[in-house]
Nucleic acid binder design. Structure first.
Length: 499
RNA sequence: UCCGGUGUAGCGCAGCGGUAGCGCAGGUGACUGUUAAUCACUUGGUCGUAGGUUCGAAUCCUACCACCGGAGCCA
C-alpha cells in the first residue's frame, strides 16, 4: 500500500511507492508517454505516465489544467524533473476533470486577475508572496514575544473619529453611527499602561479614495506601544524589527525571491545603522546644492537608460520578425508593450524631473513631505531612512512636541528604499493632560468621547510611544512588487470588493 | 474628486471609414523524455452601452458605464 506524501518530501522517498494528491499544473504528451505536472501547494511533481499502463495514460491525457488528481507511483530522482524527483506512474485517479480553467500559463490583464483572485492565488508567483507573508507575520509575533511584549487585540468597531472622519468607514450599530477602526493606538496606550510593552496586529480600514499602487482600503497593521519609551527607543526598536524581518525572509525564501525576480542584493544591504535625519535636516538636504547635483547626475543616468531602452525596443521589434512560435511572439509582443509603457513613463518622469528638482530646492520648512520628496530622500541612500521631528502642524494631536523646539513633534517616519515609501509612522505621545487638551482644542476636537483616553494622563501618566507598520507595504518592498494588491490574499480596493 | 489612458473570441492583442484578424487556451489527429514540447487540422465574435455623422462605422463625434495609471491623503 502506497503511503501518501507531500511533493516537497518526495526526495526523501526515493524508490518507494507513494501517492500524491493535488491539481494538474501542466501536461505534455507524446504518443506513448505523457508528462503530467501535479502541484499540491508544497511543490510540483512531474509524473511520467507510459502508454503501457493504458488506464493511467488515458486518465492523464484527459485531465485539464487544475483538475484534481490522486497519483500513485514509484519515486525516482531525475535531473530532468522540475524539482529533482519524479514519479514512475502506476495509477492516475482524476477526482474531478476540469475542461475550462480560466487562468492560463500566460500573461493576463490585471482586471481579469483581480476578478479571479480566488484562482489567481494558485499561481506560483502568488503562492511565493503568500509564503513570505506568512513568514513575516510569524516573524512579527516571534520578535515581539522574544522581547517580552504582550499581544493586545484592539477593537475593530470604534466610536467617533480619531483622525478625521472622512477616511473612516461608517457602520450602523443598532441605529448609532460608528466606524471601522483605522488604528488601535489609543487602546494600545491604555494597554501599555497596564502591561508595559504591548503590540497589536490586525486589519485596519481607511476609506481614502486613493487608487494608487500604495493603497488598500483594508490592510494589516502592526502597532507596538511601549510605556517609558522615548523617541530614540522607538527608533532602535523599528530598526531592529525591520532588520530581523528582512533577515528571516532572506534566510528562508531565496527560492521565492528568485521566482519573484527580486533584487536580493538590495535587501542584503539592509542592516544597522539606518540613515537618521531630522525633518529640518531633510529639508536642508532637499534644498541643498549637493542633492541638486546628485539628482541632476541621476537625471543624466536615466536619460542614458532611456536611450538604452529605446535601443532595446528597436532590437525587440527586429526580433519579432524572426520569431516563429506563437507563444514566443505573444511574449515578445507583451515585452515590447511593457517596455514601450515603461519608456513612455520614463520619458514623462524625465520631463517632470527638472520641475521636481526645482520644487525640492524650493521646499519650505513647514510643508509636509509628499510622495515626491520622500522618493527623492529615499533615493539618496541605499538603506531605510528615518525622518524625525516633523512640524507639529502637519501631525496628529497626540504627538508630543519636542521640549527643545515646540515647533516640531517627537515623531519618526521610516522610508523604505527603492521608492517603496513610508512603511512606518510613529511617535512619542503627549503625556501631559493639559498639553493634550490644548492640542485637541487646537484641532477642534470634542473632548467628550476622549475622556477615557484623557484618564490615562490623569492616573499615572508616563512617557510612552509606539509606531505602526503597514504589513502590505512592507511586503511589497520585500517582494519587489509593483503594486500592493498582490501582498494580501484578497485585496480590498476602492471600487473592488469581489471576490 | 481631478487629470490621463483603455474597452474587439474564454484570455492577451492587431485592425483606426469599405467582407472580423493573429496568438494562447479549448477540440481532433501524429509523435516514447517533454521542460510554456512540436507539427497538421479545427470550434469560437450584437467589436463596452446608447445616440449621432456617413452610401457605408470596430474605426469619426457625443453621452454614459466599466476598468487601469497618476495626483491629493496616507501605512
Amino acid at each position: 500500500m502506497a503511503i501518501t506524501v507531500r511533493i516537497c518530501d518526495l526526495m526523501r522517498h526515493e524508490g518507494q511507492d507513494v501517492e500524491i494528491r493535488g491539481w494538474v499544473h501542466g501536461l505534455r504528451t507524446g504518443g506513448k508517454i505523457a508528462f503530467l505536472l501535479v502541484r499540491d501547494g508544497t511543490g510540483v511533481c512531474q509524473c511520467v505516465v507510459e502508454a503501457a499502463r493504458p488506464d493511467a495514460f488515458e486518465a492523464a491525457v484527459s485531465a485539464g489544467h487544475e483538475s484534481s488528481v490522486r497519483v500513485t507511483g514509484r519515486v525516482r530522482l531525475d535531473p530532468r524533473a522540475p524539482d529533482g524527483a519524479e514519479l514512475d506512474t502506476e495509477r492516475v485517479e482524476v477526482v474531478q476533470n476540469v475542461p475550462d480553467y480560466p487562468i492560463a500559463r500566460k500573461e493576463h490583464g490585471i482586471d481579469f486577475l483581480l476578478r479571479h483572485r480566488h484562482l489567481w492565488i494558485r499561481s506560483p508567483r502568488q503562492c511565493a508572496i503568500l509564503r513570505i507573508r506568512d513568514t513575516v507575520v510569524r516573524g512579527i509575533h516571534d520578535f515581539f514575544a522574544a522581547q517580552g511584549f504582550v499581544r493586545i487585540d484592539t477593537p475593530i468597531l470604534t466610536p467617533g473619529a480619531a483622525e478625521g472622519a472622512a477616511t473612516l468607514f461608517p457602520v450602523d450599530y443598532f441605529g448609532e453611527k460608528i466606524y471601522l477602526a483605522q488604528t488601535g493606538q489609543l487602546y494600545l496606550e491604555a494597554a501599555a499602561m497596564a502591561l508595559g510593552r504591548v503590540y497589536s496586529f490586525g486589519p485596519t480600514f481607511r476609506a481614502e479614495k486613493s487608487k494608487t499602487r500604495r493603497h488598500l482600503t483594508e490592510f494589516w497593521m502592526l502597532e507596538p506601544e511601549i510605556a517609558w519609551a522615548e523617541l530614540p527607543d522607538l527608533m532602535d526598536l523599528a530598526e531592529r524589527l525591520i532588520c530581523d524581518l528582512v533577515g528571516r525572509v532572506l534566510e528562508r525564501h531565496r527560492a521565492e525571491l528568485e521566482l519573484l525576480e527580486r533584487d536580493v542584493a538590495a535587501l542584503e544591504r539592509v542592516h544597522p545603522p539606518f540613515i537618521r535625519l531630522t525633518y529640518t535636516e531633510a529639508v536642508d538636504l532637499l534644498r541643498g546644492t549637493d542633492t541638486r547635483r546628485r539628482l541632476e547626475e541621476e537625471l543624466e543616468r536615466e536619460r542614458a537608460e532611456l536611450a538604452a531602452g529605446q535601443a532595446r525596443h528597436g532590437e525587440l521589434e527586429a526580433q519579432m520578425a524572426t520569431v516563429k512560435k506563437g507563444w514566443a511572439q505573444d511574449r515578445l509582443a507583451r515585452e515590447i508593450a511593457a517596455l514601450r509603457e515603461r519608456l513612455a513613463h520614463m520619458g514623462q518622469e524625465l520631463e517632470n524631473r527638472p520641475a521636481h528638482i526645482e520644487a525640492a530646492s524650493r521646499f519650505q520648512w513647514g510643508d509636509d513631505l509628499g510622495g515626491d520628496e520622500e522618493t527623492i530622500l529615499a533615493r539618496l541612500f541605499d538603506r531605510p531612512v528615518m525622518v524625525t521631528r516633523y512640524p507639529r502642524a502637519v501631525k496628529a494631536f497626540y504627538m508630543k512636541p519636542a521640549p527643545d523646539d515646540r515647533r516640531v513633534v517627537l515623531n519618526v517616519d521610516v522610508l523604505a528604499p527603492e521608492g517603496y515609501g513610508e512603511i512606518i509612522g510613529g511617535s512619542q505621545r503627549e503625556d501631559d493632560l493639559e498639553a493634550l487638551r490644548a492640542r485637541m482644542a487646537e484641532e477642534g476636537l470634542d473632548p467628550a468621547p476622549y475622556e477615557w483616553y484623557l484618564d490615562l494622563r490623569r492616573y499615572g501618566t508616563v512617557p510612552h510611544g509606539g509606531f505602526g507598520l503597514g504589513l502590505e507595504r512592507f511586503l511589497a518592498w520585500m517582494c519587489g512588487l509593483r503594486h500592493i494588491r498582490e501582498a494580501i490574499p484578497f485585496p480590498r480596493l476602492m471600487g473592488r470588493i469581489y471576490p
